[in-house]
Computed example of a mutant assay.
Amino acid sequence: TLISATQVIRKDVEVKLSSVGRLQSILSPTVATEVSGRVLGTRVNSGDEVRAGDTLLTLDTTIVELNKNAALADIDSLKIQIANEERRVERFRSLKKKDYLASTQLDDSIAQVRVLRSQLKAAYARLEVINDQLKKAALISPVDGVIDERMVSTGDFVKVGTPAFTIINNVKLRAHLPLPEGVAARLSKGQPVHLSSPLAPGVSVDARITELRPVVGNGSRAVTAIVDLENPGTWRPDGTVIGIITVETREGAMIVPETSIVRRPTGPVVYVIEGDRVVQKSVELGLRTPEGIEVTGELSGDERIAEDGAAFLVDGAAIRLAEAN
């Protein structure tokens, strides 16, 4: 029988799983107001890009400004009172040295200075609080990102903790890749993942599984592979992402051409060339690769096997090799 021959290939084969999932922003803070007041104006709307430190809205500070003026007046008044009382203390000390004054009057005056100094310290603390309120009257973006939702408008009265904006940060993303329970046992944290998105053809990211989360409900043991990644530039939260997970690398796997595999009733076989005859060897089929199909079984990996014409062979058949072009 005229046949062509080929060599069994030895190479590492990666076992991969694919999943189609969604992208999510790792940083998506809801920015809330830190002081009460009426909204004077908003600087941004949904879809606007912002940088950390940008002003998102401003609040009316009329009442806070009045409180600040009152606090400054209290400080000035206390300073004057302290200065007057300190002069009185010095005068009382002079009189005490000449025994013209009772000790209790001097002690009372010294105590009054201490009280006034404590009141001045408290007045300065109140002023710091007021200055902090004035600073927080301008709501500042804590991160770079895009405004996902604006929840307040000009003229609204807001209280401390009122949600005002939701910001989505596009720099750090998280891919959620759902996988069936049948492959859950083959997954582990740290396995390499190749990510791509149909929204940005030709752009890909290599990362690793950050976390494995079980799917809750219905008694399912399916899992979601979580992959944290840096945005390659054009990906967006809620976008589709395709993940190829490498779950195993089979070192030195045997690869043979598909034309060398003959499917017999007893299972797939290949024909090993020994001189001018062939010997039938049973194999088990594995992964399909660009070079052929992975096989295991009765091969050692260094054999020459029949390729074209293999389907017409039987165990022990005489052969003649076709000359290579």
Rank of each mutant, 00 (worst) to 15 (best):
I75A: 05
N231Q: 11
A164V: 10
G309F: 01
L116N: 00
G239P: 00
S4M: 06
E65L: 10
R288K: 13
T61C: 01
I140S: 04
A175N: 02
L127D: 00
R91P: 02
L285I: 14
P180R: 07
A83E: 11
L134N: 05
V227R: 02
S153D: 12
W235I: 06
G145P: 02
K135P: 03
G309P: 02
I255F: 04
K189R: 14
G53M: 10
D74H: 06
Q24G: 07
L95G: 03
D238F: 08
I167Q: 01
D132M: 12
G21L: 05
V256W: 00
A73P: 00
T259Q: 14
T162I: 06
V64Y: 02
V272Y: 04
I226R: 04
Y100S: 09
S25E: 00
V247E: 03
G47Y: 11
T30W: 08
Q24A: 13
N169C: 12
G309E: 00
S77V: 03
L78S: 00
R277C: 07
T1N: 11
A164P: 05
V216Q: 12
V283A: 10
N131L: 11
F165C: 05
R126H: 05
R150V: 14
E181G: 12
E149C: 05
G252E: 12
G21N: 03
K16N: 11
T234P: 05
V272I: 10
G41D: 04
L40Q: 06
R87G: 01
E294S: 07
R87M: 07
L57S: 03
I140E: 02
L78G: 03
A318M: 12
L116G: 00
I226L: 13
V278D: 01
S141N: 06
V283S: 05
V113M: 01
S77P: 01
D228Q: 09
E90T: 11
R288F: 11
D54S: 15
L95W: 07
E303F: 12
I168G: 05
I293V: 15
G217C: 06
T234F: 09
G267K: 06
L101G: 01
Q24P: 02
G286K: 08
Q24Y: 13
V146D: 02
I305L: 11
S197R: 08
E86Q: 13
I273W: 06
D238R: 11
L177M: 10
T33F: 06
G292S: 13
M254G: 02
V279H: 09
L195W: 03
L173C: 03
V158W: 00
D48A: 15
G190C: 08
T1E: 09
Y124A: 09
